[in-house]
Each structure stands twice: as structure tokens, then as C-alpha cells.
Design a protein around this nucleic acid. Structure first.
Lengths: 352, 352
DNA sequence: CTGAAAGCGCTTACAG
DNA sequence: CTGAAAGCGCTTACAG
């Protein structure tokens, strides 16, 4: 039954010691006699006592809690990131509170504010925009240790844990070029986000290496969510010269692109090719399987937690950049037989 | 710069009033003179003061926070549920802390315990098992208001918000029967979970109405995660008489089933049909599009929050059961032309 | 090894 | 309308 209204005083009374002694036992302070310890433990057990974390936090000024503000929970990439963050944090004795920004700066700020008010020990953020005043203030004040993950805000003294997709994008463009595609379009994320602008830049640069230009009409402005991918793709398809291939800067916009393509009764890759940034399990089973750039999501989450906890505990972590890699499937046309990068489903999901 | 170490005392000093007055202004207590209010507000602004939520919670004995323990974050169904829960909670002035059980009872208990220690105002749970001692204790003690969502634990005085899939399962079986399928198999969730057992029962009952039996060999034991769906399907395929159609009791096991089917080089629906409980955006684009039973996920989340907040505020909510519905696509064979239940992508995702 | 006491940052009767 | 003071449930020097 153990009514949770039991306090440390009740335990002290039951054990016949002072609350100080109870507290010491609970915090495994060395100087407690074995006898007292046993009595306290017995009382704790008997009463079903659980320390009030709120009171403890107020007193110790630490919550053993990390905040994680992600851009979009409906995005499997962030969901996987959140999972690995929670796991790594738990291993170090921290809880994590997740805030979902839904790609909306105001919602992001709402969560950051709430998290800060709760006095979390550290904050992991994947910023939805170029830096709201609140975010800039928080980062510059430095009161709460911060680390950026996936996306970041330039010019701030905050470690960044992310993956670099430049090489993979270059591989992708080489792959597309090899298949004979020349009209290549991209659905970009918001220019204010680092991943939004970087992926376009990397794409443009890679095209340039092949002597291909990236006309404005081939840059669709998306917001990393499905609906924007659909709209951008509709616009591409309405062009006098539609692209041969569309590269979606994240998996949700690729989903939207598939919606748009399907709505027009077109086929992938015969009528138009599709590739995506971020690889997810479903891409193996879409019609056709989608060629994608895979990030080492689990590693990113773990590295981010490590960096943040380093900061919290007074060490000075450095930024971490991990490589992404191209996974070729069939959505841009048949690759030459024997091309590397294809995979079996078992190898692909072995770590789930 | 507003160092966050500013406390209410600093504000009081700056405004030339007592901390009591500052507190009253912050909590919009009526009896404060306009002059004092203005001075306090100015001081708050000048110092960038933010109340310490930990201290406030300790004092008021409420955290304005809801806990949500879901079975698996990697499951898009729960992710969508979590999103709607957070949204509904936020509208009522509550934050929500999500705990991911990963379908593991110990992990579920870990999160429940942590949440209770943090003195959340209410707890929403989708139990991973039939009821751990901790969960039973918490529910019976009633110290923290609780509501079950999706799954529940029988015999407890805790409101349940869920969707009833019986009718939809019957529709599914009728659909399969109409297509000429007679050997129907199911990949079940853990028998200890309500959704695990209910879906098998509904399936068995529906088969019975058509004079079809459900042999043990056609019941694959899964755990709602992808790998188990793969294993169960491999076993089905190795049978002397493999089933015509496999019904996966959730979307992740359907993903696993697709993996297994693809690994054997078989085609859906020609070689074997597939249907799933839970509909997700990707099912429109898999090869082939997957026939699924859709739950009103957003409504469930909202209803769950409403019920929980009712409990917290002293009202007595009743349980809520919403219907699920069958969405026919092509993964079990071509439906007769003109059959209802098919849909366009736009109508389908109009609420995202 | 142990206990009395102060104090973490707030809120809220209570008295004026 | 306002302030002094108590107290939420803990932890932790301090003194013994």
C-alpha cells in the first residue's frame, strides 16, 4: 500500500534515528554505523519510502536530468536519436526530458524555457532555426551547459555533435551522374538551419564538379516536413522540364515527394528518380526501395550525451563530426551490377 | 546577460518590495497595487528573472507535469500518440515527460519509478506487461492519478482510453475471405498485454464466423517489435502449408514480416498476403501498399489527457473506447473494383 | 558515528 | 495592499 506521502521524517521515526542519518544512508555516505544503516534500510522498506526528487533537487541544485529539444518527433531520424540519447543518459544516471519543436521556433523556445525553468543539468538542442533570442541568450549566458546535436547555431561557443554529409552527397551525385541523370533537383530544408543550407550547398558543389548547374527552379523550399515535400515535388512536376531526379533533404520530405509522384500516377524511377537524406527502415520496403544517405544516428546520440555530461562535470568536450554514407537502392534507376552500397535487410537492422 | 542565478529576492530588492509581493505579481494574485505590480514587472524584465520551477513545485506540491510511459518510441503509432498527448497537455498548461519502455517491463518500471519520484501530477501508461508489482502498487495506492492508454491492466480502478479493433478485424477477415484466402495466420503481440491478446481473440472469433480455424502453427508469437515479426514470418514460410495471408498485430512486426518475405525473394500479395494493425504514412508507399487497421490516434491522445486532467482536478472521468477502421490497400490481393476503404494520400494525411 | 540546525527558492496564511 | 514568517522535504557543514 505504501502511501507515497511518507517523508524522510517518517523513516527517521520508524528507524529511531535522525533524518540526517536517514539521508546519509540514502546517499551512501560512509560514516554511518552498520546497525543504523540496517535499521534505516528496514524502515525504508517497511514504509515503501521514496525520496522526493523535487526537494532533493532544490537542495542540491542538480536535477540529474538532461533536456533534449528535437526538431520533430514524427521524424524517425529524431526518434532514433532520442532513443539513443535516453539510453546513453540513463547509463550515466541521468533522465532525459524530450521537447518536440515540430519545426516551429516558438514551440522550440517554449520547450527550452520550460526546461530551463525546471533547472535541468544540461541541454541538448537541434535548433529549428538560426537562433532565437532566447536560444542565443541561453547559450551565451552559459548558466546551463549546452550541446548542439545534428543542427547548430554558428558563432556560439557551444560544442556541436553532428554528421557531415558532404562526401555522401558527392557519392550520391556521382551515382546519379553515372546513371545518366543530368537534371537534378533538391528539396531543401529551411535555409536558417545548418542542415538545411549545408545539404543544398553540398549538392550544388557536387553538381558543379560534374559541370552541372543547379537552377533556382530545381531548388524546392521545404521545411523538413512531409507536406512541404509534396508541394515542392508538385511544383517540379509542373515544370516545362521536370527534373530527372529529386533529392529530398530529409526522409519526411521524401515521403511527401512519393505522395506527389503517386498522385500524378508516375512511377519511380522510370518517370522520375528519388533520393533522400536520412535512412530509415521503411526505405527498404517502399516502392521502389529508396536510395538514401545514412547517418550514424546511434553514435551521434551517444557522443552528444558524452559531450554534454563532460560539460556538466566541468570538462571541456570538443565538437564531434561523424561521416554519413550513401546507401544505394533502386529509386534512381538500376545501379550497375556489382555496385557496392546495396545491402541485406538483416545486416541493415542488426543493431535495432 | 541575465545570469539565471537571479532569485526572487533579487527581484524584490530591485523593485523595492517584499518577496511576497513579487510572488503575488508572478502568480497574478489580485491584491497588488498597480504601482507595485509595475515595479515588479520592470524588475523581472530588467534582471531576466525566471522563477525556479523546482522550488515552486516543492512548495505547491504540484509540478504541472504529466508522465507518459509508452511501449516503444520507435513505433510510429506511439510517437504520434505522444505528440498528441503533449499538444493536448500543453493546451491545458501541463508539460509531459515521456518514458520509453522499449517493450521491456523493467525499463517501464524504471520510468514509472523515476516519474513518481519527480512527483508528476499524473501518469499516462501503456503497460508493456500484465502488471508489474510496481505498477499494481502505484495504481492501487492511487497517490498519483493514473490513466491507461492503448493497453491496460485488467482489474484495476484506472480509467482506460483505447480503441476497439474488433469490428475492424472482422472487416479485415471478411475482406480476406472475400479474396478467397482461407489459410490465415497472425503474428501476435505478448499475451500479457491487452492489445496482444485481444487482437488474436478478435481474429480467431472472426475466422470462426467464417468456419475457419486458427491452428497454433498459424499463431506467431511476437513482441510488437520488428525482429519478432521477421522471425515469426520465417517460421510461417517454412511450414509445409504456409498461410495465404499474415496479419501482423502492429506495424513494426509488419515491417519485420516484409523483411522476411523479401529475404526469401517472395512477392506480396502474389506469394503471400500481408495486413497490419496500426496504419502509418509509409504503408501507402510500401511495395505493395499495406492493408491496415487505423486507430484514431490523435483522438486517443487527447481523450487520455482529458481523462487524466479530470482525475487530477478531482473529477471522475470514465473510460473511453474509440473505434478503429479497416483501410484496404493492395497487400492481400486486388480488392473488387468499387470496394470502399481505399483512399487518396491527401485525404489520408490531411491532419498532419 | 550522530543529531540539531540552517537553508535551497519559492508560496501563502496571518496580521496589520 | 503589504510584509514577516513559516514551511514544502530534503542535504550538509558544524559541533559533539
Amino acid at each position: 500500500m505504501a502511501p507515497s506521502s511518507v517523508g524522510i521524517k517518517d523513516v527517521a521515526a520508524e528507524a529511531g534515528v535522525s533524518v540526517a542519518t536517514v539521508s546519509r544512508v540514502l546517499n551512501s555516505h560512509p560514516s554511518v554505523s552498520p546497525a543504523s544503516r540496517a535499521r534505516v534500510l528496514a524502515a525504508v522498506e517497511a514504509l515503501g519510502y521514496r525520496p522526493n526528487a523535487v526537494a532533493r533537487s532544490l537542495r542540491t541544485d542538480q536535477t540529474r536530468t538532461l533536456g533534449l529539444v528535437i526538431s520533430d518527433v514524427l521524424n524517425p531520424y529524431f526518434t532514433e536519436l532520442a532513443r539513443s540519447v535516453e539510453e546513453a543518459a540513463r547509463a550515466l544516471g541521468y533522465s532525459v526530458i524530450i521537447g518536440n519543436a515540430d519545426e516551429r521556433p516558438e514551440l522550440q523556445d517554449h520547450h527550452v524555457r520550460t526546461l530551463l525553468d525546471r533547472r535541468i543539468d544540461g541541454l541538448l538542442v537541434s535548433p529549428t532555426d538560426g537562433g532565437s533570442p532566447l536560444m542565443l541568450d541561453a547559450a551565451r549566458a552559459g548558466t546551463t551547459p549546452m550541446v548542439f546535436v545534428d543542427r547548430w547555431i554558428p558563432g556560439l561557443d557551444v560544442p556541436v555533435v553532428r554528421s557531415d554529409g558532404r562526401a555522401a552527397v558527392r557519392d550520391l551525385v556521382a551515382h546519379l551522374h553515372g546513371l545518366g541523370h543530368r537534371r537534378l533537383a533538391i528539396i531543401a530544408g529551411p535555409a536558417a538551419t545548418t542542415t538545411g543550407s549545408e545539404r543544398v550547398d553540398a549538392f550544388r558543389d557536387a553538381l558543379h564538379e560534374h559541370g552541372i548547374a543547379l537552377p533556382d527552379a530545381y531548388i524546392g523550399q521545404g521545411d523538413f516536413q512531409a507536406a512541404s515535400g509534396r508541394r515542392a515535388t508538385e511544383r517540379f512536376l509542373a515544370l516545362p522540364e521536370p527534373p530527372d531526379v529529386v533529392f529530398a533533404a530529409d526522409n519526411l520530405m521524401a515521403l511527401g515527394a512519393l505522395d506527389a509522384i503517386r498522385a500524378q500516377g508516375l512511377r519511380v524511377p522510370q518517370d522520375i528518380g528519388l533520393a533522400a537524406f536520412d535512412d530509415i527502415p521503411w526505405f527498404v520496403h517502399t516502392d521502389p526501395p529508396v536510395t538514401a544517405i545514412a547517418q550514424p544516428t546511434g553514435d551521434l546520440g551517444r557522443a552528444a550525451v558524452r559531450a554534454l555530461v563532460d560539460r556538466i562535470e566541468g570538462r571541456s568536450p570538443r565538437s564531434v563530426t561523424l561521416p554519413a554514407r550513401l546507401v544505394v537502392r533502386r529509386s534512381c534507376g538500376e545501379p550497375d551490377p556489382g555496385t557496392a552500397g546495396t545491402e541485406s535487410p538483416s545486416s541493415e537492422r542488426s543493431n535495432r
